[in-house]
């Protein structure tokens, strides 16, 4: 009976040694992973940082500036059709042989510069109606 029990004991010991070996294998894999991650963090290309010379107070001022958010939303929804209308009605070619050509040219340049700003386009619409004597529909 005892002769048969000995090999069993050896097998058990061998299993323990094998499981310890596999545990260390996993630990080394994890260690390798951690080292690879840290190496990636150290050697990866860092993002370009701009604004290094920017004054802190100026940033705070820019951050606390009040904005007309209604104008931003109106620009998203209404600026494009108004720009099309204004650029069509105030095109300098329409005033080619008249004394209004110069002011039409100036207004048209301003319209093109502020094509995505609804409130400025509204101001330019009033200016165009006054100076060029035209009627622009809403």
């Amino acid at each position: 009976m005892s002769l048969f029990s000995e090999p069993d004991t050896f097998e058990v010991i061998n299993d323990t040694v094998a499981s310890e070996g596999s545990l260390w294998k996993y630990v080394s894999i994890v260690q390798f992973g951690v080292i690879a991650y840290l190496a990636y963090k150290v050697y990866r290309k860092k993002p370009e940082i701009k604004f290094k010379n920017v004054n802190r107070e100026t940033v705070k001022e820019a951050a606390s500036k009040e904005l007309d958010m209604e104008n931003v939303i109106n620009s998203i929804n209404k600026a494009k059709p108004l720009f099309k209308e204004l650029s069509k009605k105030c095109h300098p070619d329409k005033f080619a042989n008249s004394d209004k050509h110069e002011s039409a040219l100036k207004i048209y340049q301003k319209i093109t510069t502020n094509k995505r700003n609804y409130s400025k386009l509204l101001d330019l619409k009033v200016l165009a109606e006054e100076e060029l004597d035209i009627k622009i529909s809403d």
Binding site: K65, S75, R116
Partner: peptide, 20 residues
């Protein structure tokens, strides 16, 4: 694309976004 350009064209808003 148009919405993005409207935000980007608004200098005050863009600066505020960056500062925040």
């Amino acid at each position: 694309m148009e919405i993005g350009k409207i935000i980007i064209d608004n200098e005050e808003l863009t600066r505020k976004l960056i500062a925040l």
